[in-house]
Design a protein around this nucleic acid. Structure first.
Length: 525
RNA sequence: ACCCCAUUAGCUCAGUCGGUAGAGCAACUGACUCUUAAUCAGUGGGCCGGAGGUUCGAGUCCUCCAUGGGGUACCA
């Protein structure tokens, strides 16, 4: 059986032959479990002073090290003939394991091969090792193994340890390799989990309840986006994947819940770039007897607390892109600019912000004036678009890029805000804000429109806009939603927050892809 | 959808004017009982993203295609 020729080019075949040698020698390469009593590496590192072996100046052992069992993946392998050093990583940290022939042989007289078998180990294999904790001559905390075993053999090589994995395509398609090779990727995903946990805890503290609304719906609405479609076989109907949770959460407000939120995936059939992914996690929250001023407070709370939590984590991990000021102010450094997350955030008005930069008063202006501005400033635009979408374009081009520090932009025109309540003293404006950070929209909130007749009129206008060629406008009026409103919805404040974008900013990541575990990629043909 | 750039060993990258395909890590063989990007000696490893074209000759020049990145457009 040893006579089978192995092509030395085929490293997988080499590993399979090692696996067979281990199994033949009584080392099961895929055991169901390892010996009980395994401790984590972070525990050993934390308790190191209590656990380690203590020697006097002459090197005499005064107190033996504690015997523990560790398990993890082999990340380094340095063989020295009759001893070897193994770098071991578990989910909590790194630790060095020392295999010494004499020690292993003396502890296992029944198995004369126990040291030799270790020569069948490769980088990437999972092993367990039980032994005594000591400090090497060079000061490295180490476990000297008395016993060891395979926990799971790896058949393929891991990425190179020193340069890591940098091919952007491979990083996304084989994210597990990216995670192993690039520690900051794992930290960024941990920050994502931390932000989600922090936001849930804050909202629960505020008396909010979390409910899940349908993903599969026969109508789509609550946002301007093109949907994904799918099909239900038993009912034989086409369904849409939701583009927002808004219209269902408002039904829950009508039904008597006063503080409700959902944090879940929504799906928008649009392009992919550094702040867009077709499926993304959206937080939406609604509070009865609240308005958009209350939503600003909640936004400051959620963003502020998330920033605080991420800062604590980043400091613990030794990262330096985060600063904590003397007064507890938190800021993130991006491209040399400090972004401060200390509430209250700046507040500017939508109409004023455009006028200050362009001189155009969008409430009095006309389409021709916008067109002229675009042309003279060399900005590409779609001349077929109606007035209000062009106003939005004007805002995106001139104001948005300047909104680096967290900034609330207040009081959007009603033409851009089909679901927001009009301002009592300025009916052409709405009680709506968006929160921008680093030129990116993070949150969108308003005093919700609860006048069912006004809501119907605005939805009809949208459907007409669709008919006129706006593919992002809804295709049908959600009559069931309007019926719900006609039964009466209290004055309500509502807000949506793009979780991924918030995490991108707070983690210092360069794009949404970095903090999304598995962003959408084109399948390989 | 459009423009620009990239694609060479398992990984990270060189490759000059168009003239025999290179390095480090990883792998393989051997030495080595406190190493740590271990060291030392030796060995193997390539559809140069794919398909065409120009040429005596193409990793290198041209065209098309695929994938990725950046930008533009789209995304209230």
């Amino acid at each position: 059986m040893d006579q089978i020729e192995i092509d030395p080019r085929d490293q997988r075949a080499i590993r399979i032959s090692k696996l067979e040698k281990l199994r033949a020698g009584g080392f099961e390469p895929y055991p169901a479990r390892i010996p009980e009593g395994r401790v984590t590496i972070s525990f050993v590192n934390k308790e190191w002073e209590h656990l380690r072996q203590i020697s006097d100046e002459t090197g005499q052992v005064i107190r033996p090290g504690t015997v523990v069992t560790l398990a993890g993946r082999i990340t380094a392998l340095r063989s020295h003939g009759k001893s070897m050093f193994i770098g071991l990583t578990d989910g909590t940290g790194d630790f060095q394991v020392y295999f010494r022939k004499n020690t292993l042989d003396e502890s296992n007289p029944e198995d004369p091969e126990i040291y030799e078998r270790a020569k069948e180990l490769d980088l990437g294999d999972f092993i367990w090792a039980e032994g005594e904790l000591f400090t090497t001559r060079t000061g490295e905390p180490t476990l000297s193994a008395n016993r060891w075993g395979v926990a799971a053999k790896a058949l393929l090589q891991l990425p190179e340890k020193y340069h890591g994995l940098t091919d952007p395509d491979l990083r996304l398609r084989q994210r597990y390799l990216d995670l192993l090779a690039n520690p900051e990727v794992k930290r960024n995903l941990e920050k994502r989990a931390l932000v989600i946990k922090t936001i849930r805890a804050c909202l629960e503290d505020e008396g909010y309840i979390e409910l899940e609304t349908p993903v599969l719906t026969s109508l789509y609405g609550g946002a301007a986006a093109r949907p994904f479609t799918t099909h239900h076989n038993a009912l034989d109907i086409d369904l849409y994947l939701r583009i927002a949770t808004e219209l269902y959460l408002k039904r829950l407000i009508v039904g008597g819940f006063e503080r409700v939120f959902e944090m879940g995936k929504v799906f928008r059939n649009e392009g992919i770039d550094r702040d867009h992914n077709p499926e993304f996690t959206l937080l939406e929250l609604y509070e009865a007897f609240a308005d958009y001023n209350r939503m600003m407070k909640i936004a400051e709370l959620l963003v502020g607390q998330s920033a605080r939590a991420v800062a604590r984590f980043a400091e613990g991990a030794g990262e330096t892109y985060f600063r904590t000021g003397e007064d507890g102010a938190l800021s993130v450094e991006r491209e040399g600019v400090l972004i401060s997350f200390r509430p209250p955030f700046e507040r500017i008005k939508f109409v004023d912000s455009i006028a200050n930069i362009t001189g155009i008063d969008v409430l009095k202006s006309e389409k021709s004036e916008l067109v002229e501005f675009f042309k003279s400033n060399g900005i590409d635009f779609d001349p077929k678009q109606p007035y209000w979408p062009l106003v939005d374009k004007l805002f995106s081009e001139t104001v948005e890029p300047r909104l680096i520090q967290p900034t609330f932009v207040l009081d959007y025109p009603v033409g851009l805000s089909p679901l927001a309540k009009r301002k009592a003293d300025a009916p052409e404006l709405t009680e709506r804000f968006e929160l921008f950070v680093w030129g990116m929209e993070i949150a969108n909130a308003f005093s919700e429109l609860n006048d069912p007749l006004d809501q119907r009129a605005r939805m009809e206008a949208q459907v007409a806009q669709r008919a006129a060629g706006d593919e992002d406008a809804p295709n049908k009026i959600d009559e069931d939603f309007l019926t719900a409103l006609e039964h009466g919805m209290p004055p309500t404040g509502g807000m949506g927050i793009g979780i991924g974008r918030l995490v991108t900013i707070l983690s210092g990541a360069s794009s949404l892809k970095e903090i999304t575990p598995f962003p959408l990629v084109k399948p390989r043909s």
